[in-house]
Write a protein that binds this DNA or RNA. Structure first.
Length: 595
RNA sequence: CGGGGCGUAGCACAGCCCGGUAGUGCGCUUGCUUUGGGAGCAAGAAGUCGUAGGUUCGAAUCCUAUCGCCCCGACCA
């Protein structure tokens, strides 16, 4: 490509509304342009990279048996009503009506269309297993898009779906993806870790997220540097301290005026906060589905969660424990309406679903609220003085706690989710009656998994990781072009003839070349643009270099320059690019599966 | 959805408090001179000051409403 003809102009300054480095650089280097909140156009350079990412995705998914298909972005709402997600998902699911007044949705993901296809195509265990995938636009009307391409509303995702006759088959496909995803990230050079995650709106039994660790990330991860345990904070577990072994003492009501917080209470009584129980209220939304009429009704219920006073409640764990479709902190009026006294609440005598952390249930002689303004109860014991509807691990890990595996302190880190894999099970196949006949002639639901990687977010993460103060530094595998051929002194016919010849011959050697043939730009502008655009290898043809009959080579990631005789420059460029590919390929190694 | 900030030329911003000719730098066009790290000189083009309404002789500036964008949080396969 001749730069004199290329579409899109580099910017000397970043637009003011870009804060994150990758966003600023992609804008400045004319890779992307914003059209609205969370809506971006990909200009030619970015789109070349995106296509390379997509091809890597295709190669790795094909390698584990994938077959590429394409499903529409616009779906009849009926499909989403079948699975219930039409009702469960809030405003982020974009809905509209077609000409005939039929409800339609813009796809956030494609489990519904896969469920429908599976129902239509799969009859027999002989047709299983299957792995199908597509690369398609999704739309999620996010409340807050952010950080350029990191979180957009419209985005393109490679999503694959596995169909199996049994759970062993699902496990095999899940593990295949586990490794294939590492291969994909390694091929673009992006360092990631796989962490266990919440299944969220997807449902299912097990999920991993692939996280790129970066301070700009929006997820919090809990990792163990010692044994490698890693988890999204939403579901992170940790080794809880042993409960003290004590005789249960008689319960006793004590006046504790003005102690609405745990800190105040502990100080007032002169005890550590670990000897208290912390009561936190949430309002959970549940859905009741009437199978006969197919109608769904939603209702709210107050949830009281009790964790030890020195710990925090984890909303995701609570939501999962009570199986709510939605959970939010309760408002004071809702708490009072249930007969509870905020600041002095107890588990007894109130109208709420009571959820107690497992550590709390084992801990004797706690101090908890008396459900009376200004009073607490001492020496409260689970079973004797109160009970719970559910006992579960609902405490949040914040970093610093002992690792559940090895006991070493955990560490909190920020990350961006660049991929995820889910064991869905039969949620979607059951919703669509996607059954098959097994060997014994029995009808069984197809067992599904789903697996996603967003191409634009991946591009942004790579840009975030590989850059310096002057610009982007693409890994060769997804660089828009391999070589940036920069011509200075174009008014010298020897220079321009040499540059033109190199442009032809480099391409003949199979290299992708961006040719800065602009005659009006000064050397300074050309060097600055070259650094900004970030191709892996830069070749400079100039008066100066031709005086020694050579071409100047410089890798974007290195500071040294090298003079290469003109006649050797094509083969030298070829070998440098081959070497860069080989370096990336060397990182593609088997990764032990971690459950 | 809660909190905060910002909308003035393609980009970055000043002007607004205190109403009175719409500005600066970069970029863009033309010409000449330049050519190894964002050149110089000269001459140009380009903005209904987000939108609507109000106050006023007069509004980028004051008032009201509204739309958009960004950041923090909530939410989020």
């Amino acid at each position: 490509m001749r730069q004199s003809q290329s579409f899109g102009q580099t910017l000397r300054e970043a637009p003011g509304d870009a804060e994150v480095a990758s966003h600023q650089l992609l804008l400045r280097a004319a890779y992307i342009r914003q059209i609205g909140s969370g809506l971006f156009s990909f200009l030619p350079l970015a789109y070349r990279s995106i296509k390379k990412i997509e091809n890597i995705l295709r190669e790795e998914i094909d390698a584990i048996g994938g077959q590429e298909i394409l499903m529409p972005v616009v779906h009849p709402a009926d499909l989403w009503k079948e699975t219930g997600r039409w009702f469960e998902i809030g405003k982020e699911l974009a809905r509209f009506q077609d000409m005939g007044g039929r409800d339609m949705v813009l796809a956030m993901t494609h489990e519904e269309t896969i469920g429908d296809l599976t129902h239509k195509e799969i009859r027999s265990y002989r047709q299983l297993p299957q792995l199908i995938y597509h690369i398609q636009t999704k739309f999620r009307d996010e409340a807050r898009p952010r950080a350029g391409l990191i979180r957009t509303r419209e985005f393109t995702m490679k999503d694959s779906y596995s169909l199996d006759a049994d759970y062993e088959g699902l496990d095999r496909q899940y593990r295949n993806h586990y490794q294939a995803y590492f291969n994909i990230f390694n091929r673009v050079g992006l360092p990631v870790i796989a962490v266990k995650s919440d299944v969220g709106m997807m449902g299912g039994s097990l999920a991993h997220e692939y996280m790129y660790l970066t301070p700009i990330g929006e997820d919090t991860l809990i990792v163990c540097d010692s044994c490698g345990y890693s988890s999204n904070r939403q579901v992170a577990v940790f080794r809880k301290p042993e409960a003290p072994v004590e005789e249960a003492l008689p319960a006793e009501k004590v006046a504790t005026p003005g102690t609405k917080t745990i800190e105040a209470l502990a100080q007032f009584l002169g005890i550590p906060s670990s000897r208290t129980g912390k009561a936190v209220f949430f309002t959970a939304t549940f859905v009741n589905k009437d199978e006969s009429s197919g109608t769904e009704t939603r209702y709210d219920r107050l949830v009281l969660a009790i964790v030890r006073g020195d710990m925090e409640a984890n909303e995701t764990k609570i939501s999962n424990a009570v199986k709510a479709v939605e959970l939010r902190p309760a408002q004071t009026e809702e708490i009072r309406a249930a007969g509870a006294v905020p600041g002095y609440a107890s588990a007894t005598g109130i109208n709420a679903l009571v959820l107690v952390d497992d550590l709390v249930s084992r801990t004797p002689n706690l101090v908890v609220g008396a459900n009376e303004e200004g009073f607490h109860l001492k020496n409260v014991n689970y079973g004797r003085d109160y009970t719970a509807d559910i006992v579960a691990d609902i405490a949040a890990a914040n970093g610093g706690e002992p690792c559940v595996n090895c006991g070493e302190p955990l560490r909190a880190s920020r990350g961006v989710e660049v991929g995820n894999i889910f064991k869905l099970g039969t949620k979607y196949s059951e919703a669509f009656g996607a059954n098959f006949l097994d060997k014994d002639g029995q009808s069984k639901p197809v067992i599904m998994g789903s697996y996603g990687i967003g191409s634009g977010r991946l591009l942004a993460c790579v840009a975030e990781e590989f850059r310096d103060k002057d610009g982007l530094m693409w890994p060769v595998s997804i660089a828009p072009y391999h070589v940036h051929l920069v011509m200075l002194n174009s008014n010298n016919p020897v220079v321009s003839e040499t540059a033109e010849r190199l442009y032809r011959e480099l391409r003949k050697a199979g290299l992708e070349v961006l040719f800065d043939d602009r005659s009006e730009a000064t050397p300074g502008v050309k060097f600055a643009d070259s650094d900004l655009l970030g191709m892996p290898l830069r070749l400079v043809v100039s008066d100066r270099s031709l005086k020694t009959n050579s071409i100047e080579f410089k890798q974007r990631s290195q500071s040294e320059r090298q003079s290469v005789p003109v006649e050797e420059s094509v083969s030298k460029a070829r070998s440098v690019i081959d070497m860069l590919f080989a370096e990336l390929q060397a990182q593609v190694v088997p990764v032990p599966y971690k459950d």
